[in-house]
C-alpha cells in the first residue's frame, strides 16, 4: 500500500498555480525527500496532505483515504512539523508540547513524561518556561520537530526541519527520522539542504514551478545527469595518444587534457573506469592513478531545475 498517493493534484491560490498536476507515490516505510527551489510547491503539497488546504483538482490519498473527502480519517495518521513554527506569543514551549501530547492521545501523566524526555533530547528543557516570542529561530523550529517526535504518527512530515537549527540538532533529527522509520512510520522531509537529503532520504522527488521534475534514489538521480561523473586519470606516456584512445570510447562528453592527466565527464563513471584503463593500456599508456567522482546532489538539483552544471 502506498503511504501517500498524489493523483493529478492541482492547487491554485487565485491566479497563482502553486502545484500543477502532480503525480507521485510515496511508499509505506520509506524516508522520502521533497526538493525544489523556493516557491516550487513543496509546502503547498505537504499542507494539502495534512488537510490544511484542499486540492483545487485531483486528489491525494493517505493510506488510501482521500484528503478531500476523508479529512478526519487522514488526520489520525498524519503529523507535521511546519516550516514556519506555529504558536502565539504568550505560549511557552512546555505548555505547547504538553497540550499537543494530550490532543494526539496521551493521558496527562504520560504526556508529562514524553514531553520532558523529548525536550531533553532536543536541548529544549532549559527554555521550557520562556514565552514563544523570546525564543530564537532555531529553538522555535525545534519545537515543531518535538511535536512530531511526541506524536510518532504513521505519516510524519517535516517541512524544512533543519533550516536554522544547529548541527547537533540536525544529527539528533536525522537519528529521530531513522528511528521513526524503523518503528514503521513513513517520513517525508522537504529540504533545501542537499547534504541532508543525501544523508537520510531513500528516494527523492525534485519539484520545479509546481511540477515534478524527477524522482528516484539519490544514485538514480545522479545517473540521470548527462556527463555528470568526473573521471580523472593520471598517466605516463604521450598525451595525444592518450587523448585519441579515450575519445574512441562511447559517451565521452567534455574532457580536459593536461601533460600527465586527463579529466573526462561521462555517465556511470564508476562502471566505466575499468574500460578506460584498459583502453589506455592497450594504447601503451601507463595508468598511474584513476579517480571517479560522482556529481553532487547540487549538480542534480541544478540540472533538473533549469540551472546549468558548473563549467568544468
Amino acid at each position: 500500500m502506498a503511504a501517500v498517493k498524489i493523483v493529478n493534484f492541482v492547487k491554485r491560490f487565485g491566479e497563482v498555480t502553486a502545484v500543477n498536476n502532480l503525480n507521485l507515490e510515496i511508499y509505506e516505510g520509506e524516508i522520502f525527500g521533497l526538493l525544489g527551489p523556493n516557491g516550487s510547491g513543496k509546502s503547498t503539497t505537504l499542507l494539502t496532505i495534512a488537510t490544511v488546504y484542499k486540492p483545487t483538482s485531483g486528489d491525494i490519498y493517505v493510506f488510501e483515504h482521500s484528503v478531500s473527502r476523508e479529512g478526519d480519517t487522514v488526520r489520525k495518521f498524519v503529523g507535521i512539523a511546519f516550516q514556519e513554527p506555529k504558536a502565539m506569543w504568550v505560549d511557552t514551549p512546555y505548555e505547547l508540547l504538553l497540550w499537543h501530547a494530550m490532543i494526539v492521545g496521551y493521558t496527562s501523566h504520560e504526556a508529562k513524561n514524553v514531553v520532558k524526555e523529548t525536550m531533553e533530547r532536543l536541548n529544549l528543557w532549559e527554555h521550557r518556561k520562556k514565552q514563544f516570542y523570546q525564543l530564537s529561530g532555531g529553538t522555535r523550529k525545534k519545537l515543531e520537530i518535538a511535536k512530531v517526535m511526541i506524536q510518532r504518527p504513521r505519516l510524519a512530515i517535516f517541512d524544512e526541519p533543519t533550516a536554522q537549527v544547529d548541527v547537533i540538532t540536525k544529527h539528533a533529527l536525522w537519528d529521530v527520522v531513522r528511528e521513526m522509520r524503523d518503528n514503521g512510520s513513513t517520513v517525508i522531509v522537504a529540504t533545501n539542504d542537499m547534504f541532508e537529503a543525501e544523508k537520510i532520504c531513500e528516494r527523492i522527488a525534485i519539484m520545479y514551478r509546481g511540477e515534478l521534475r524527477t524522482l528516484g534514489s539519490v544514485k538514480e538521480l545522479k545517473d540521470q545527469v548527462p556527463g555528470g561523473d568526473v573521471v580523472e586519470v593520471s598517466f605516463e606516456g604521450d598525451r595525444e595518444e592518450a587523448k585519441d584512445a579515450l575519445l574512441k570510447l562511447d559517451g565521452i562528453g567534455r574532457y580536459m587534457l593536461g601533460n600527465d592527466k586527463i579529466v573526462a565527464y561521462l555517465n556511470k563513471g564508476e562502471e566505466r573506469a575499468a574500460e578506460i584503463v584498459s583502453a589506455l593500456m592497450s594504447a601503451g599508456i601507463k595508468v598511474k592513478r584513476i579517480m571517479v567522482q560522482e556529481p553532487t546532489l547540487d549538480d542534480v538539483f541544478f540540472y533538473f531545475t533549469g540551472a546549468r552544471l558548473g563549467e568544468g
Partner: peptide, 22 residues
C-alpha cells in the same frame, strides 16, 4: 482576539492538522 490572531498568523493551520474533526 485570539481566533482572529490565530487566523492572521496562520496558527490555525496547526489546529487544522490535529487528529480531531473540524
Amino acid at each position: 482576539r485570539e481566533v482572529g490572531a490565530e487566523i492572521r498568523r496562520e496558527v490555525v493551520q496547526y489546529l487544522l492538522t490535529l487528529p480531531t474533526s473540524r
